[in-house]
Simulated assay, not measured.
Amino acid sequence: MTDMTELARRKKPLNLAIVHVDPEAFLAAYQPWLEITAFLSALRAGQVEMPEDGITPALTPQQLAGGVTHQIGNDTLAAFCMTAAMKGDGAAVDTVEATLRARFGPDFPGHVGLWPFRGEIAAPVSLDDHVGQAGKKMLAGDPTPPPMRNGETWTVGMRFLERALGSNFKSEIIYPQALWTRARWEDVCEGGVAFMAHIEENLPILREALSEPRNDAAFIANLLLLGAPAVEMDLQDDVKGMLRSLARR
């Protein structure tokens, strides 16, 4: 079967693997996901026809060399690295990288999406650079000194949210990020309270925001919006507008 039903069927186990940071499940679902997305992209472009037997074709050497397969792979690997980073599970990323290298070689589909989480980028420019470098620290368990930790919580949360919103795995990133956001802002309100700006004003506001039981994009956006003054983050109007829109229920 090579239609959207098959796309959804193959994506489901990958979704769960990303949410739960399960490297074995991710590796089992990865190639079937690349095969269906590559085939449907080629079908829409008129480059292939529906196979008579209804079986999704295997990836060709040309597809493995670049193009849509790598674009999808980059996004998929980045999503897994993000959720792994929020759990501090560097071993899961090591397993995925080693297996994909053994299976496809060093230029495996998705290796570009993985690189910002592995390489040393002295001056990050793109959103992927910033997300990857933050994720690299989290995967390594490299804590930031307390005076800078509150500001880092806000910055990393904002960049991860922006990256999630542009991913094929938005929902799968958002839920773990909401859990991470709750834990990090609870730490801001406890261990990091001495480094909070205007404590008497901001602490009650943040504690009330943390009382929201739902772990979703609105919760994340609301914490970012209300937490900005606490870390002395001056938001531009377009960022305020985006966060306000997401925070509405």
Rank of each mutant, 00 (worst) to 15 (best):
A164S: 12
S167G: 07
M242F: 11
P143K: 10
E35L: 07
W185C: 01
A221T: 02
N202I: 06
E172D: 15
A45V: 07
A78H: 00
I205Y: 08
L7M: 12
S171L: 09
H20T: 06
P204T: 14
L206F: 11
A164N: 06
G191L: 13
G90F: 07
D237H: 15
M148K: 11
T5C: 10
D187L: 10
C81E: 03
P145W: 05
P147Q: 08
A247W: 12
V68W: 06
T5Y: 12
M138K: 05
M233E: 08
P32G: 05
R44S: 13
A123P: 00
P106A: 14
A218M: 12
A45D: 08
L139N: 02
P51H: 13
E162A: 09
V68T: 10
P51A: 08
L27K: 04
A28Q: 14
A230M: 07
L14F: 03
G105Y: 08
D75K: 03
L224Y: 02
I121Q: 04
D94I: 06
L206Y: 05
R163D: 03
E212M: 11
G135N: 04
A45L: 14
R182V: 07
M242K: 11
P147W: 02
A178P: 01
M233K: 15
P204W: 11
F117M: 11
D234H: 10
M242S: 11
L34H: 03
K12D: 15
G88R: 10
F108E: 00
L165C: 13
F104P: 05
G135S: 09
I121E: 01
T76P: 00
G141N: 11
E200K: 15
N222S: 13
E97N: 11
P51N: 09
A79R: 00
H20C: 08
L225G: 06
L114M: 11
R184V: 02
T144G: 09
S126V: 04
G54M: 13
V21N: 00
G241I: 06
H111E: 09
G119L: 09
E152W: 10
F104R: 03
A42C: 11
C189S: 08
F195E: 07
E152P: 01
G110Y: 02
K170W: 10
D142V: 01
D94M: 09
G227Y: 00
K87F: 12
E200A: 13
Y30R: 05
V93P: 00
H70A: 09
V156H: 02
K87D: 15
P116W: 03
A45I: 09
D216C: 09
L161F: 07
K11I: 05
E162M: 08
V21F: 06
Q236M: 14
